[in-house]
Design a protein around this nucleic acid. Structure first.
Lengths: 334, 334
DNA sequence: CACTCTCCCGGTACCGATTCCGGTTACGAT
DNA sequence: ATCGTAACCGGAATCGGTACCGGGAGAGTG
């Protein structure tokens, strides 16, 4: 910057004014400075700028688990909205480890991001909450329940409605023993789904004995659980898988049991991953618009950055029936 | 920091020395400063630190397309190696748009990352190359050919060996008309795969007429191309899909043609995505170790950061035979 | 002609740290 | 008692910018 000022024969102030669009600058000066900038191809140092300004025009996105294919769409949705508003988005992946959540949040705060979008690996981690609460950045959480004192905005999926439809459909088809392979209950989606399934089961009078409590999102656990309940005397005739990560394990267990999906056993999973289309038969799902989730989160963040109060948005989920959902085999009917 | 210094009754210098582990510090001073730091829970400002030091202990990872499921593994592999070395990794996604590549690189450079891992959306973008060449950061490219004057390290996959095995296997099974639905040729993987397939076809004397030139990684294009060649008079009896993103399109086209994979037509795809296991029949693939790719890239970057000269690593790919690969139907044999 | 007002510009403090450099202090050696 | 040395500390410059503040020049006004 000094070089530029020297080349033009002016002061640092003027160069700075030109570059940051300050009005107190004559057209002539602007021209000369711009010329020198081009000439020396000078680029301002973001670090120094941010240090002085206290803002970075960038937001951090902490992803609990980037291997979840939904995240690609969610982050894309968020990024395009942010970019349009001239913000950059930096991504950090926690690999499902709460301690990384906290690290990443700390890192991003230290880098002075202007806002944070969080799809954390865990909800209650005190370390993370602590970091967040003692900073004043705008926060938007995706499908997580955060302590209200953080006054974060939130984008939630209405898991209940899709799940309710799924259970109702299964019961309508004649299923009386429906199992839920639940996702991790320390995360909102797992809790919401379980709650909705249980409530609907009770309402329809089909009992709720076949609900597994979800310790994690590990496919191996889903496989073990599915295997276990399939060997019960009164094995379920339909299974709902509470998360796309669990699906692989569940499918392996079903395959191992020799059952055929659709005819021997019905299956509903969550979210439209590639597998649901190409599985034979195609899999019924509770699905949602992932890009929209990301875009909404970004939108909420921009609002907060503009000074608006926190807000929560609830996005729908819908049950999409496919051939994996059919009437139970005659032998199993009550 | 001033508050800490005041609390201890010392100077900024001493606080700084304690915190940055400088030797010229008495144990007593260290104790007192640390106490005050805990007390006031002070955290150093990364921005200011980096500005002064000229290093950030962070590296940028530009991902051409994060919706490619391979990326989750690659980035995880890289991140765990980097974290072990006390570096943070920030991710930016280009959504296959070259102009975003350039933006991201510029952004990360302005943020003074110490190094860059690049899996760019495109190879030759002059804007991106330009950014890179006029900076002195360490660069590692993943499966991309970059101009040598950048002296970047590179992690490459040996696509040729897996592809060669695949073609040989198909020919051994009796296929004479093998098609390649090629990935984008402006990226190294696409070129390498096409080259290997063509060479092997010629070597085995099965002609090379059925190679589509890949304009993009769009599933829709793959679908159109596949549909087209399946309607030819001498349609192929085996298809090799040159990229996991293309697979969906290809499968749709095959399904639309009424053919059954395995019996009517053989199929080989690239990379072990979830679909290959659960497809009926399971899909043969040319596969590779994605975590290792990421880990190697990180390793190479750390080497460069430590002052070593650039280096290239070539990682194997292997052909994994599965039921989607079988002898051609009798009707189609020569 | 003096006065005010506006428009630009330069000087300088500051953001929050690090680091060089010089100065104390204590201590053992001479 | 004096000196050299090592250990430790504080002052101040610095990284690369931004922004406030005050001033000079020119235009407009009474």
């Amino acid at each position: 910057m000094q070089e530029v000022a020297a080349a033009v024969g002016t002061s640092l102030s003027s160069v700075s004014r030109v570059l940051s669009g300050h009005p107190d600058v004559s057209p002539a000066m602007r021209r000369r400075v711009m010329a020198a900038v081009k000439e020396l191809d000078y680029e301002p140092d973001f670090l120094a700028q941010s240090l002085r300004r206290g803002a970075t025009r960038s937001v951090g996105f902490v992803v609990g688990d980037i291997s979840n294919p939904l995240m690609a769409d969610i982050t894309s949705g968020a990024e395009s909205v942010l970019r349009r508003a001239d913000y950059s988005m930096v991504l950090m992946n926690s690999e499902n480890r709460p301690e990384l959540d906290a690290n990443h949040v700390r890192f991003l705060l230290a880098r002075r991001v202007d806002g944070l979008i969080l799809s954390l690996a865990t909800e209650g981690d005190p370390e993370t909450i602590d970091q967040l609460s003692r900073s004043r950045v705008a926060v938007v959480a995706i499908d997580r329940d955060l302590p209200p004192e953080l006054d974060a905005s939130v984008v939630l999926s209405d898991h209940a409605s899709g799940m309710t439809d799924a259970v109702n459909r299964l019961v309508d088809l004649g299923h009386r023993r429906v199992a839920l392979i639940s996702g991790a209950l320390h995360l909102r989606p797992g809790r919401e789904r379980l709650e909705a399934v249980r409530r609907t089961m009770v309402a329809r009078g089909v009992g709720d004995g076949l609900i597994t409590d979800g310790g994690s999102v590990e496919a191996s656990r889903a496989q073990a659980e599915t295997g276990r309940i399939l060997e019960l005397a009164d094995a379920p005739t339909a299974i709902i898988v509470g998360g796309n990560q669990l699906l692989a394990g569940c499918l392996r267990a079903i395959r191992a049991s020799g059952r055929r999906i659709g005819s021997d056993i019905s299956l509903v999973t969550c979210d439209e991953t590639t597998i649901v289309e190409f599985h034979e038969p195609p899999l019924a799902t509770v699905s949602r618009d992932n890009e929209l989730i990301g875009a909404s989160a970004a939108q909420l963040l921009l609002e907060r950055l503009a000074g608006a109060p926190p807000r929560r948005v609830i996005l729908p989920t819908t049950f999409v029936a496919r051939a994996s959902c059919a009437a139970p085999p005659v032998s199993a009917r009550a």
